[in-house]
Simulated scan of single mutants.
Amino acid sequence: MNLGRVYVMATNVFREVIRDRILYIIGFYALLMVVVMLLLPQIAATTEDKIFLDFGLAAMSILGLIVAVFVGTGLVSKEIEKRTVLVLIAKPISRAEFIVAKHLGLVSVLALLVTAMTIIYLALLQFQGIAYPLGSILLAAFYLFLQLSLITAVALALGVFTSSVLATLLTFAVYLLGNFSQDLVNLGRISKSPGFERLTQGLYLILPDLSRLDLKNQAVYGAELLPDPLTLLANAGYGVFYTVLLLAIAILVFLRREF
């Protein structure tokens, strides 16, 4: 794999996504947070600080997810549907480089979005005089980025062999099931149905456990709720490993596709 070609293509993907007015999301996030900041004292006078803390991280997660899913599923599938992929693979660019560059390009955009939204979030917290655990919030933002990187890999892998619409629906399904995969296992255990229990265990083994990369509640309700450093490191490694695995699957499928 030629890193120079990957870098050039990833940069082009970054510019292309930015050109699609994705950065408007940062302005929307800022406007949304200001509106919530003004409305909260009227509807939740006693708990407005906690709600604002929670809402800021949740909005960051949802907006990042929308970009990862809708842009990620179209990065490859639209190239295939429009047949522009034929021009790209005719150049001295391997299919593996094509997939990796697409992922790195979008992940760079997501890193920019998460960073900008985190800065806006912290600035508004400071402006409001709300006490907040800086270290926990920064850690939660970093793990949100890891989660979005993984979801982008899911979107790319699904976009390689299906339409962008179906890939979008399936990626959202993976996201929802991935966040509740541990609950599914517990549900299977208490169901007293061997078949259903095997199904839930199978889903848990196949689907990414996204709850490992979700630290929003711990960031809001106390740093003492955060996992120990070894667990945090293991969870980060899990996210990176699963992302690489999904990209490898996407590359394998893409190599076998005929155009």
Rank of each mutant, 00 (worst) to 15 (best):
V13K: 10
F52D: 06
Y132D: 09
Y238V: 11
L65K: 01
L225P: 07
L3C: 13
A155I: 03
V174Q: 05
F259K: 09
K192A: 15
R189T: 15
F180W: 00
V71F: 11
A155L: 05
T231M: 08
Y121H: 05
A123G: 11
M37A: 15
Q182W: 15
P92Q: 04
D20N: 15
K102P: 01
F55T: 00
F70C: 02
G74C: 07
L63A: 02
F28T: 12
I99W: 08
P41H: 03
A167Y: 04
I120K: 04
A116R: 05
N2C: 06
I99F: 03
P133H: 11
G195C: 05
V69H: 03
A111M: 01
S149Q: 10
L146E: 02
D209Y: 01
D214E: 02
L110W: 00
I249A: 06
G135K: 11
E224H: 14
L57I: 07
Q128N: 10
K192C: 00
L205Q: 14
V34Y: 14
I66F: 12
T171F: 06
L177K: 02
Y121K: 08
Q182F: 13
L124G: 06
P92V: 05
L57F: 04
A157V: 12
G64R: 00
K91N: 15
A68P: 02
G239N: 01
